[in-house]
Amino acid sequence: MSRYLLDKFLYTVDRDHELTERYRAEPEALVAWWEENIANSLLNCVVAEKTTWLRFTDEERTALITHDSVRLFELGAHPFLTLTLWIAMFERDFDEPLAMQLDYARKLADKTLPYPDITT
């Protein structure tokens, strides 16, 4: 399990409108593409600098593909990164102001901190 890789995925997809829309429309394809092309690049570094060993576990990949915010939280993904990406992808599906955020909070209501650790 890699909190780093989950958070890197959430961070990079949230900051690129095209990736956000691809993740919403075709999550399995986007997760596979991202893992193959982005996962091993170093953030904010030259393209030539890459690692070769970073991969999602099957559990992480499934949670990302199914947009399972609760499971991502349980796996250690930072809830603020998940929330901001979910707002970009799903807020438009709710009729009332803040309805998406309240739904997100309701789904995580039985979870307690400090697990997982959400320090930055």
Rank of each mutant, 00 (worst) to 15 (best):
M1A: 14
M1L: 13
M1N: 10
S2L: 05
R3D: 14
L5D: 01
D7L: 03
D7M: 02
L10E: 00
Y11A: 10
Y11K: 11
T12K: 06
D14E: 10
D16R: 09
D16E: 10
D16I: 07
E18A: 13
E21M: 15
E21C: 08
R24V: 05
E26C: 10
E26G: 08
E26L: 14
P27L: 03
A29W: 01
L30Y: 02
A32F: 04
A32I: 05
W33H: 13
W33R: 11
E35P: 01
E35N: 06
E36T: 12
N37H: 15
I38Y: 11
I38D: 07
I38M: 11
S41R: 12
L42D: 08
L43C: 10
L43D: 12
L43R: 11
N44H: 10
C45Q: 11
T51Y: 08
T52G: 14
T52D: 15
R55S: 07
F56D: 00
F56Q: 00
F56P: 00
T57E: 10
T57Y: 05
T57K: 04
T57G: 03
T57N: 05
E60R: 01
T62Q: 12
T62C: 06
A63F: 02
A63R: 00
A63Q: 00
L64T: 01
L64Y: 03
I65F: 02
T66Q: 10
H67N: 07
H67R: 09
D68W: 03
S69D: 09
V70N: 01
V70P: 00
R71Q: 14
R71S: 06
L72K: 00
G76N: 08
G76F: 04
H78F: 02
P79F: 06
F80G: 14
L81M: 08
T82K: 00
W86Y: 13
E91I: 02
R92W: 05
R92F: 04
D93V: 01
D95E: 13
D95S: 13
E96P: 02
E96L: 13
P97I: 04
P97S: 05
A99C: 06
M100K: 04
M100V: 02
Q101M: 11
Q101H: 10
L102F: 13
D103G: 05
Y104I: 04
Y104Q: 04
Y104D: 02
A105T: 08
K107R: 15
L108M: 03
L108C: 01
L108F: 01
A109Q: 13
D110M: 07
K111C: 07
T112Q: 08
T112V: 09
T112H: 08
D117F: 06
I118K: 09
I118V: 14
